[in-house]
């Protein structure tokens, strides 16, 4: 029987499968399908210092083997997250990752300070949201700004900080190294790739925001390549994200270098995707006779 638990910057997860930010709300909706305690963790909906209404609809469109979305960080703000949602989550025996996004470095810092005294286990620094005008991905596309926001946030909190990276860059390895050098405790990648769909009859983009973030199986090979590239550059833990829809995908991502993985868009396709991946991964690891699922991480045999 394989031990499925993994450690992510000092925090023990009962298995390596985390529900991905933005697809899973604050978890409560999916607790109407299965107990959230089955999960390794949950990365909460991207939260900002103040409440945000988000972008006007339509916010989602189907794409070949995926979707594009432009929600634009609609959320109730960090105070309501702490006072309402975090309390409901923490009674369910689950590792909680708070995904935070800001317009400015100061906002990231203010939120990190607010979370310091909370029951949040890990802070995920969202410097990769493609759907907001200020902040978001703008922080994630240059090594200097990645380093700056990481350093500043690390100075304000004792919580482990995981930096979520955007794939919309020339060299993901350089960005990852900048975050690691600045003190990031872990990295998560990838966020969505900027995309667009057009209604050929009206000639208007389907999304009211014109562009949106592409996710789902379509981005999976890009995510695997980027995780494997980043794994060669940094020694901190990596959480692999991007189009994982099956336990085989999860295993592939771990072999590429991920210590844990997040499942996002697959939840829309199958609300039980996370638990099916956990069970499938466990069977696979058992069949290989692994003592620990961590034995899979970074075992890629490149040609």
């Amino acid at each position: 029987m394989t031990d499925m638990s993994v450690k992510l910057c000092g925090v023990k997860l009962k298995n390596p499968v985390i529900a991905a930010s933005g697809t899973y709300g604050y978890g409560l909706e999916y607790s109407e399908f299965y107990p959230l305690s089955r999960l390794g963790g949950i990365s909460c909906k991207g939260t900002t210092l103040h409440k945000r209404e988000g972008n006007p609809p339509p916010r989602i469109a189907e794409t070949p083997s995926g979707i594009i979305n432009s929600v634009g960080l609609q959320n109730p703000g960090v105070d309501e997250f702490l006072n309402v949602y975090l309390k409901k989550l923490k009674i369910q025996d689950i590792v909680v990752i708070a995904n935070i996004a800001g317009n400015t470095v100061e906002e990231y810092c203010a939120m990190a300070e607010r979370l310091q005294e909370s029951q949040v286990d890990i802070i995920e620094l969202n410097i990769s949201c493609p759907n907001v005008k200020l902040g978001g991905v703008n922080f994630g596309t240059s090594c200097d700004s990645v380093a700056q926001v990481t350093t500043e946030v690390k100075n304000r909190t004792k919580k482990p900080v995981m930096v979520k990276l955007t794939p919309n860059v020339t060299s993901i390895g350089d960005i990852a190294a900048a975050a690691a050098d600045a003190g990031a405790d872990a990295l998560s990648l990838i966020n969505t790739l900027t995309g667009m769909r057009i209604d050929i009859r009206t000639r208007r983009p389907i999304l009211r925001n014109n562009t949106g973030g592409l996710s789902g199986p379509a981005v999976f090979p890009i995510a695997v390549r980027m995780v494997s590239e980043v794994a060669k550059r940094v020694s901190i833990p990596i959480v692999g994200i991007g189009g994982i829809a099956s336990w085989e995908d999860a295993a592939e991502m771990m072999i590429a270098g991920a210590n844990a993985i997040q499942v996002g868009t697959a939840n829309f396709h199958d609300p039980f995707a996370c638990v099916k991946i956990i069970d499938g991964l466990k069977n696979f690891a058992d069949s290989l006779g692994l003592k620990s699922i961590t034995e899979l991480t970074g075992t890629l045999k490149e040609w």
């Binding site: 697809t23 709300g25 999916y30 209404e53 609809p57 989602i60 469109a61 929600v71 829309f268």
Partner: peptide, 26 residues
Amino acid sequence: EERMGCGVGACLCCVCATKDSKGKHF
């Protein structure tokens, strides 16, 4: 009706504009 993602309220994709005494909300 609106283009929908998860169908259960988690993803915030299928919003519509509503109003109350405090203003406009999705």
